[in-house]
């Protein structure tokens, strides 16, 4: 079993803390700020803020070959954790140590230029994912083949269904191996057949590369894909370890 092998961790997270200052009555516009500072000046200037810990002392390590599943109810910090790993958010304390190249997808139903065709969007996305790539034609063509979009590839992207957008994006992000790949609830748009196909492709490249992190609400999917589980609850690590007992503790948590 790969999880018992001793090797240097590919990523190590220690005592990660991320908090937000939440206002009780947040203002969503300058007009509201203007009005509430005039009508309730005292409440406005001395309003109470509450610290909300999205992540509170999260620590774990991943070694090569890990396919980590992350479970947790909404608001438990799953996406915040992934965004920190991807380098989008920064933690107020604690640290993430890794030398790995990390790629992450949080929503697969997105294109950049709706007026341009699927193929043109594919080239643009490839450039954004891999700016210095030399063999760009090769990678894009392979991804297009894999997506099975056929002649739709030369249709403007704005005419794509959510599932078709999702096919193209997932094919591209997985077209080159990377050290760590993070997939945060991205399979919702794609159909069953494509999900299986892309899961296989991921498995293949985990063997050659580092690790994947997989966030999902579907226990079935996690069982199918992952070999390790992290359960988050209110920003804390509730469970980290083997799949079987982890799922049990997640179910107990919910009830």
């Amino acid at each position: 079993m790969s999880s018992t092998e001793y090797s240097d961790p590919i990523v190590s997270v220690s005592q990660l803390k991320v908090y937000f200052e939440l206002e009780h009555y947040p203002n969503r516009g300058l007009r509201e700020v203007f009005i509430s500072s005039l009508t309730h000046p005292i409440q406005y200037f001395f309003k109470t803020k509450e610290l909300f810990y999205a992540l509170n002392d999260v620590s774990f390590e991943l070694s090569k070959g890990t396919r980590l599943g992350i479970l947790g109810v909404n608001g438990s910090g799953k996406t915040t954790l992934c965004r920190c790993l991807a380098g989008m958010m920064t933690a107020q304390s604690g640290k993430i140590e890794t030398k790995a190249e990390i790629r992450a997808i949080f929503d697969s139903g997105t294109g950049i230029m709706p007026e341009l065709t699927g193929r043109e969007n594919a080239y643009l996305l490839a450039r954004l994912f891999f700016p210095k790539l030399k063999e760009i034609d090769l990678v894009v063509n392979e991804a297009i083949d894999f997506s099975e979009l056929g002649h739709f590839i030369d249709v403007p992207f704005k005419q794509y269904s959510k599932g078709m957008q999702s096919r193209l994006l997932l094919s591209l992000i997985s077209s080159k191996t990377t050290d760590i790949l993070i997939l945060d609830e991205v399979f919702d748009g794609a159909d069953m057949f494509f999900k299986t196909k892309i899961a296989k492709r991921m498995m293949n490249f985990i063997e050659t590369a580092g690790a994947t992190i997989f966030v999902s609400h579907s226990i079935e999917q996690i069982k199918e894909v992952c070999n390790k589980l992290l359960v988050l609850n209110q920003g804390k690590v509730h469970y980290f370890g083997e799949i079987g007992p982890g799922i049990e503790s997640y179910i107990n948590l919910k009830s």
Partner: peptide
């Protein structure tokens, strides 16, 4: 790499 990204995005948006 970010400069390459800026260039590609600009070209694509002009094209679009």
């Amino acid at each position: 790499e970010e400069l390459i990204q800026i260039r590609e995005l600009t070209l694509a948006s002009i094209k679009s």
